Amino acid sequence: MTEREDEVLARIRQGVFYTETEAAFLGPGRRADLIFDYNGTRPGDTDRKRELLERILGSVGKRTVLLAPFHAGFGSNVHIGDDFFGNVNLTFVDDVEIRIGDGVMIAPGVTLTTTGHPIHPELREDFRRFSKPITIEDKVWIGSNVVVLPGVRIGYGAVIGAGSVVSRDIPAMTVAVGTPCRVVRHITDADLPTARPPGDGH
């Protein structure tokens, strides 16, 4: 790696703006063709899907289910733990790392994006952007059509309500909803006895 590439990587890690041209050397980490193959693999061909997933992702745990189609800018910057379930149309904008713990469930249409762009249009030439890693801790449940923004950490056991835009860290063992996403309550032992789904008034 050249001195210039080292300097660009350092800026990326610091969350400082960088351009597409500056980051072009990261291109070999993109797994677009393998993702295309994964999304076209028959649902019952679990061995083939597992083989492709291990080649696409930076790391993947045991008993992982990722329903097709899914999308990723790179794929190689995504790390998934054991007992993961990702429903259809999960999108990883993984210019930097996305780390997902064990026992995480993600509903349809969710976007995890590590990257944003400058507000002023004059700064957006050559796709200038910044990137900050996302961390999703163990046993998190993310509802449908949620967007998780750069730099966010979602704590252990948290539940993110459908349609939320998560722009700040969410503490462990909380329910958070809305745009922007805010904590509405803590998860306690009082949530254990019921077998009813959330919101069921019967």
Rank of each mutant, 00 (worst) to 15 (best):
E97C: 04
V60C: 15
K139R: 08
V88M: 13
F36R: 13
T19F: 04
G15H: 05
E5Q: 03
R99L: 05
G178Y: 07
A32H: 14
G155V: 00
G15A: 00
R99Y: 09
E137R: 04
A195P: 01
G116V: 00
V16Q: 07
F25N: 06
S131C: 08
R4Y: 10
L112M: 15
M105S: 02
V93K: 06
V152N: 01
G75W: 00
T114E: 02
E20H: 11
D200T: 14
C181Y: 05
V60Y: 13
A72E: 02
V184Y: 01
W141N: 13
H186A: 10
Y156Q: 13
G201K: 09
R182G: 05
A162E: 06
I154V: 04
L34Y: 11
F74S: 08
P118K: 06
I56C: 08
G40N: 14
G27H: 13
M173H: 11
P180H: 06
I154Q: 05
I80D: 04
V152Y: 04
E97N: 03
V183F: 09
I142K: 01
T115Y: 05
E54W: 03
N145K: 09
N145S: 05
L57Q: 10
S144W: 01
D169C: 08
P28R: 09
G81Y: 11
V110R: 04
H186P: 11
E97F: 05
V152S: 02
V165K: 02
Q14M: 06
I12V: 08
Y156A: 06
A68E: 09
R31P: 12
W141H: 09
T135E: 05
Y18L: 08
R50T: 12
T135C: 03
R4L: 14
R153S: 12
R182A: 04
A10V: 00
V175W: 02
I119V: 13
T2S: 15
I119R: 04
A107F: 09
N87W: 14
I98T: 00
L67K: 14
E7D: 03
F84V: 07
D138G: 10
G157Y: 01
G101W: 13
E3T: 11
E7N: 00
R4D: 15
P193G: 07
V166L: 07
V165F: 04
T46F: 15
F25Q: 02
A176I: 05
R48A: 15
N77K: 03
V8L: 07
P108E: 03
F92P: 15
S144L: 02
E7W: 03
T174C: 07
R63S: 14
D200P: 14
T19N: 08
R153M: 12
T46P: 15
D169L: 04
H79Y: 11
R99C: 12
I134D: 08
L53V: 10
I119D: 10
T135I: 00
I170E: 04
I136K: 00
T64K: 02
V166D: 11
D169Q: 00
G155I: 03
T46M: 12
E5I: 09
P197V: 06
V60W: 10
G178C: 06
A32S: 15
N39I: 13
F17M: 00
G116E: 03
D169G: 03
D189S: 06
L149Y: 15
V93T: 12
P118D: 12
D191M: 01
A32Q: 14
V104L: 09
F127M: 13
P197D: 06
D47G: 12
C181Q: 05
D83T: 13
V177M: 01
E137Q: 03
A24Q: 12
G163D: 09
T113G: 10
S167Y: 00
Y38V: 09
D45L: 12
